[in-house]
Design a protein around this nucleic acid. Structure first.
Lengths: 334, 334
DNA sequence: ACACCGGTCTGAAACGTTTCACATATCTAC
DNA sequence: GTAGATATGTGAAACGTTTCAGACCGGTGT
């Protein structure tokens, strides 16, 4: 080597500086700086057996909910010296599977994932190989793994109870058709609340647009607008804020006044919910906290010590804004 | 090996299946499936010298502009078998430098980056080591590298001309204080247009909130609201849509009617701009196309063939919506 | 019978680290 | 002065691939 020293010593300088004499250390560090030497992670982790990266697979990178979660993950992973490989499955099992394969080949320390409806065999394969997997915003199917979830039944209930209190008696639940359990839970909460509140199952209309996006929301709103006035719902709980924004856009476009003629409650409480054409009432989830907690669990599981699987469930909170308020006087648009 | 075959043959089965006999191939593939064998990328690319990943460093992961760009990058990178490591610098040079170091250690094939104001020495170091770097949404300092940019001077001009046409004579430009050249260009375009349109430099008020975020927008709006009515601008061009949304929120909160009392033009035309409390006029950039183009240039540079550095500049388009329209009759809120 | 060929497979080197057993030098205590 | 301990450095093995020179084999043309 440049510094007239063996590679073993260089390794020591980098990893256990205390074990090498100050002079040598400085000499080596000078050489490193001069040569622009950068340690090769591939070699390093070929030896170590796994890399200093974790994978994060989300359903929709364009949904701010997930970027907020990602931020939480980064907050924990980066200080621990781990790089995050962020993958977007677009709620498509094939894309998800492809991403998981890549992550397996990269020998990531672990994977954080909000999976598509069915738990992919690739995910199980990953776990079988000993890679820790933490489910994000999804309950675990069994006690043998970590999962960070939100009580979505409660969330659905909060949303529906709020609308019922405001006098609404025909309520729509707008979820996607992908069969995600989170969405199913939200539906169940809404359905239970509506049943309890009205004594009837007919008060709930369930719509399942193709995607859980703004476009999906518009699609559902168009359906609602096309219904005869007598049967048309007067309010909707949406499975996420993107859809709620879509519903709002379509309603406004057709001259349906929100919330006077139609009330909307979203879910997730992304930042844009508050900035919408009509500020959205929404069910708030601790977005960054979800990511942080999941990353912490992953690090713990990937670490050397004992690991107890944990499955924390966060409680959502309803944030009431204009989109669900009965307005008394009509002032300035806002 | 399980299939009674040498490792060299396994490698051939995986990488050049045509060179191995059908029987052997099947035998090996069966063994692979049965053992759940997953090739180790670290080893593979220790040999190859670089990994099958590229790095993408953005200024603000919470800004939908960048997630749209990221989507474009993925559209190109994934089909090419490359994983994308998405990093968020938060417009902080230190975070950016740390991310670049990690990417260097990972021996990424290349880096796509929207850099902070000053070009980091770490970036130059990366290039010196032979790693291709493509600048994203930023002009190249010289001809010796690829960059994908947008004509932001033109964008600023479009925005300002639009407001001038509507009769505004006191206009604010709201940019961040981080000194990003993109923001500077937008400012220059606005300043030039205002000078041409009014014959005076005094017509332009420049505000520089701390961050290019919704919070920054609110901060700037508060400043404007605090000004005496006679000197207060009647319209603002914001350096991005997040700030425009912030301005809008703060104006609404203080009862300032938009666009009647104050007009707003944003920049980027993120999807949420159209869904805002008052739909935002904005300067549209080809977000996904920026990402795609940048990724294509990176792949070309990282490939074996000849590479010509390219520096495409996209032209932005003004999308006019309600936030800058003088309303004639006041109908329903929208 | 021979050389040669293409097709198929093997074995070993190489990639750049970490780690561990071991060598060497220096110090401490008697 | 010697034994032992401590501090510092060396050298080689190992990680799991890819790659390349060559071995082997049955067939072909002469």
């Amino acid at each position: 080597m440049r510094a007239g020293v063996s590679v073993g010593t260089v390794s020591n300088v980098l990893n256990r500086p205390d074990v090498v004499s100050p002079q040598t250390r400085e000499r080596v560090q000078a050489a490193i700086a001069q040569l622009g030497f950068v340690r090769n992670e591939s070699a390093r982790h070929l030896r170590a057996g796994r890399s200093r990266t974790i994978g994060l697979v989300v359903l929709d990178i364009a949904n701010p909910f997930f970027t907020d979660v990602a931020r939480g993950v980064e907050d924990v992973a980066n200080p621990a010296g781990l790089a995050v490989i962020l993958c977007n499955s677009d709620d498509r099992p094939a894309k998800e599977a492809a991403h998981l394969d890549v992550l397996a080949e990269q020998r990531v320390q672990g994977v954080l994932i909000t999976p598509t409806a069915a738990l992919s065999p690739n995910l199980q394969a990953l776990r079988d190989r000993g890679t820790p997997v933490v489910l994000l915003d999804r309950r675990a199917p069994g006690p043998d793994q970590c999962a960070v979830a939100v009580d979505d039944v409660l969330g659905g209930r909060l949303a529906a109870d709020h609308l019922l209190e405001r006098g609404h008696r025909r309520i729509a639940f707008i979820g996607g058709s992908s069969g995600l359990p989170q969405v199913q839970e939200r539906h169940d909460g809404v359905a239970a609340a509506v049943r309890d509140g009205t004594g009837s199952d007919d008060s709930l209309l369930v719509l399942s647009p193709a995607t859980l996006t703004v476009a999906g929301g518009r699609e559902a709103a168009a359906q609602i607008i096309g219904m005869p006035a007598g049967r048309r719902p007067t309010a909707a709980v949406c499975a996420n804020d993107l859809m709620a924004l879509g519903v709002l856009q379509e309603m406004v476009r057709h001259g349906v006044r929100v919330p006077d003629e139609f009330a909307i409650v979203g879910y997730d409480d992304i930042d844009f919910a508050a900035a919408a054409a009509v500020p959205l009432t929404s069910v708030r989830k601790p977005r960054q906290e979800l990511g942080r907690r999941a990353a912490e669990l992953l690090l713990d599981e990937a670490g050397d010590g004992e690991h107890q699987h944990q499955q924390p469930v966060f409680e959502p909170v309803l944030v009431v804004r204009e989109s669900s308020m009965v307005r008394r006087s009509r002032t300035v648009a806002s």
